[in-house]
Computed example of a mutant assay.
Amino acid sequence: MTSTRPAATGSVAARPDAAIRLLRPFAVLALIASAAITAIGLAWWLVPDANPYTAPGSLSLANALLEPARFAAVVVATGAVGLLLAGAALSRDALGRRAPLVAGAAALLAATVVVVLGDAGTITFAGYLFGFAAVVAGVLTTAVLLVRAPRLGVPLLVLLLALIGVAVWWAGLTWEGVASFLARFGAGLVDNAPPIAVSGVSVAAVLAWTAVAVVAGRTTREMRAVESWLVRHRRALTVLAALGPLPYALVRASWLTPWPLFAPAGGELSPAVLATGLMLGAGAAAACVLTLGLILPWGRVFPRWMPALGGRPVPPRLAVVPGLAAATIITISAVPVFMLSLGADSIVDVVVFDLVLPLWFWGPMLALAVWAYAADRRDESGTGDAVAPLG
């Protein structure tokens, strides 16, 4: 817990076999993801119409600069290089070539995120899913707190009822609007299954190459120095990461007032649109709270009011895996969303858009905050490699 505690990474360097065992599952995931990327690129090369990146609003930097056949070739090349590097990471002497392994993993990570498979649709689908889950989790949490911790549950219930009252009687939310949103949401998931699958492959690839780079790099003095710095500054990093979704949450909260910000043209908020915006805002608010959990007590020990789990230590992976997945999704979407913002009417509109939805800042900052949490929990446990790099 103290910021001066040295990083417990030396045990990995002292036990290369343990580091190899830790590296292997991530290298296997990288191999599978790279094979999938290669297959996807070949499919797009042979059947250009199957490429969802050619649809309006769904693009990557490479797709914006290249015609479809060349873009498909770049995707194939990215996957092929990934296959070669994953094979090297699976070899017994992988850590003997840690410098090129780390450099190659970092290069593939950057290529996948920034150039090749970044997609504005990734954050859209993830936002809808997470927002819906946040609403359901909020209702269930309130119900549990009313029974197990009424001092917390009653105020939370009052707040929830007040929000519902404002949404229904003031803003015009209706059950028909909620049902319409849910129907369109379900249909959208089915209709967009191919790009969602590609986004899933992209996220898996980025997580795999991140893990490969960190596990291999942790045996170096430079990476241990980076982790020590992250642990020392983890509180500041976490607070900054929690600020990422806050502007969007405040914008959506304004839809409950007479002055809705970034409302549809004409200022008319139909019940379905209102339900959509409020759900996404709930997801952004939940993201703020969950991010702060990386430095709050309940991020280490389950609260007492939680059935069956209360008082038990939080497994680091329970926070790190979804945290890194979220950071990956946000970062993958940053460049395409910025590119879309360039279509605004003025530079002021571009700046405002990228401040309200600061994926360029939020994603990398969240990744650093989660990495700092993982390193701190590893130091706390004293297990060295037992929980790295995924908590």
Rank of each mutant, 00 (worst) to 15 (best):
S202V: 13
A374F: 13
L246S: 01
T331L: 09
M279Q: 11
A327V: 01
G172F: 04
V320H: 06
A272L: 00
I196K: 04
G391K: 08
L59A: 09
G217D: 09
A272S: 15
T210D: 05
A213D: 00
V226N: 07
V320Y: 04
A99H: 12
W360V: 11
G172P: 04
A143G: 14
A285L: 15
P316F: 02
R378H: 12
L240V: 14
V251K: 09
A287T: 12
S270V: 01
A107S: 05
G57P: 08
A105W: 12
P307E: 13
A13W: 10
P48Q: 05
A367E: 06
V139T: 02
A18D: 13
L189G: 01
V113K: 03
A367T: 06
P271W: 04
G266H: 10
G200R: 10
G165D: 09
A205H: 14
A103P: 03
P68S: 06
G104E: 03
V251H: 02
P155M: 02
L101G: 03
R378Q: 11
L61V: 06
P56S: 11
L290K: 03
S381D: 02
R92W: 05
W371T: 14
L101D: 00
W175N: 13
L159M: 11
V102G: 04
L390V: 14
N63V: 10
A105I: 05
F302N: 05
I123R: 13
M365Y: 09
N51H: 08
A285I: 05
V201K: 07
L90N: 02
A103I: 14
G391E: 06
G131A: 08
L31R: 12
V337F: 06
F185A: 02
L294F: 06
A386H: 13
V190I: 11
P297V: 12
L237Q: 02
V113M: 14
A236K: 04
L22V: 10
A319I: 10
L274E: 00
I20F: 11
A167P: 14
G266F: 03
L294R: 05
L261T: 12
V168C: 07
L366Q: 07
S202I: 07
A213C: 01
P303A: 01
A386G: 15
P6C: 05
V387L: 09
A211K: 05
S270Y: 04
A204F: 06
V335T: 07
P358I: 02
I329M: 11
A205K: 10
L108F: 09
S202Y: 07
G10N: 03
A272G: 05
V321M: 01
W45K: 13
I347D: 13
P336T: 01
W44R: 07
T220L: 05
G299M: 10
I295S: 00
R15D: 15
W362S: 15
R184W: 08
V74N: 01
P155L: 01
A326W: 11
A18M: 10
L230D: 01
P358L: 03
